[in-house]
């Protein structure tokens, strides 16, 4: 199978390249034409491709002329729409980095274009594939939890510094709320079977890294149609020298009791004298590998992969509502009609 990598703008591109290279039967070709527009300190283009051991072409025309069966879009968030529409126009299945788009209108257009072209659109929400999350879904489906009454979620990380566009709202769509709200919104979409978020309230600030000009801390309350509330801390609140990138946790209040889900907690703890900092050796399941396996399996089998473009769209709509709530300082209702 031929898989194209569209852009190295997102840091996850390197991880996907490594995982895809290790998979048998996958031919990989990358194109990162916009690398010259990014700061020289940010590795990209043929240089990064060479480091990753991946073939590289200079234009998307060449990438598509190669005849890929599928592409993985890792461009800047604001470019997702154009890049997914191109894939659809070429009749190529597409896995798109999260968030799917920087506006709900863009996301809807991408979903429509892929459906019209008959290609799969999948969104890169790897935590869906966490065995810990699968366990809570299984408990819920088995009826062991009764009803979920409330959720407290955290998706915290260091402020992204390795790619400047992440903190340029024109390129990324926004700050921490854009980056870190969608993962948990997606998990709850899965846990609650696509149940709609009916209202959103958000509070945010720029106290951490005030020079960036985007929100770096955010608390967002989502109320679902059945009255369940989830509050998500989506802050970039891990200090720059924290021993790991961050993490994601869910705490569910259910009829049966409380449930904690911490997919990234598995680690060996220690301390490095030379680095004068704690050592955290994480060892959980490789979620990117499972995500890619779902996508490639779908391309082979013709069965729609999950998370699909619809949940990508729904989660972008929640982010959009969160920004609207911030502007108004008030809870906002979502219109799903």
């Amino acid at each position: 199978m031929k898989v194209g990598l569209v852009s190295f703008a997102h840091v996850h591109a390197a991880g996907y390249a490594a995982a895809l290279s290790a998979m048998p039967g996958i031919e990989l070709l990358a194109a990162d034409p916009a690398h010259a527009e990014r700061p020289p300190s940010e590795l990209g283009g043929p240089t990064l491709a060479a480091q990753l051991g991946v073939d590289h072409v200079d234009t998307y025309d060449e990438l598509y002329a190669w005849g890929p069966d599928a592409v993985v879009v890792c461009s800047e968030n604001a470019d997702h729409r154009a890049d997914v529409l191109r894939a659809a126009a070429e009749g190529v299945h597409v896995l798109c980095e999260k968030p799917l788009a920087t506006s709900s209108a863009d996301a809807a257009a991408m979903v429509a274009a892929c459906e019209e072209a008959g290609v799969f659109l999948m969104v890169a929400y790897p935590v869906r594939f966490s065995p810990a999350f699968a366990a809570v879904v299984a408990s819920s489906e088995a009826g062991d939890l009764g009803r979920v009454r409330a959720v407290s979620g955290t998706n915290n990380g260091r402020v992204p510094t390795s790619r400047a566009w992440f903190t340029d709202p024109a390129r990324s769509g926004g700050g921490a709320m854009t980056d870190h709200l969608v993962h948990i919104a997606d998990l709850l979409d899965a846990l609650f079977h696509g149940q709609r978020v009916v209202s959103v309230y958000a509070a945010a600030n720029e106290i951490l890294h005030p020079d960036l000009g985007v929100e770096t801390a955010g608390l967002v309350s989502l109320t679902y149609a059945d009255g369940v509330t989830a509050v998500i801390d989506c802050s970039w609140s891990k200090p720059a020298h924290y021993p790991t990138w961050g993490g994601l946790t869910l705490n569910l209040v259910t009829d049966a009791g409380l449930v904690d889900v911490d997919p990234f907690v598995q680690r060996v703890d220690g301390f490095s004298e030379s680095a004068r900092s704690p050592l955290w050796l994480g060892y959980g399941t490789d979620l990117d590998q499972l995500l890619l396996a779902e996508f490639l399996g779908a391309v082979r089998s013709g069965v729609q992969p999950q998370p699909d473009g619809h949940v990508g769209h729904r989660t972008v709509k929640v982010v959009e509502a969160a920004y609207e709530s911030l502007r108004r300082g008030q809870r906002v209702d979502l219109d799903w009609s």
Binding site: R149, E206, I207, G218, V253, D255
Partner: peptide
């Protein structure tokens, strides 16, 4: 949110979520 009425005791669980904005701009959950 409050759980369903059950038996002779109160409906459980009872759970609430409060988001605060402080005058400093800090936010709390």
């Amino acid at each position: 949110t409050t759980g369903s009425e059950g038996g002779d005791g109160p409906a459980l669980p009872v759970t609430a979520q409060v988001i605060l904005t402080h005058r400093s701009g800090a936010i709390s959950y």
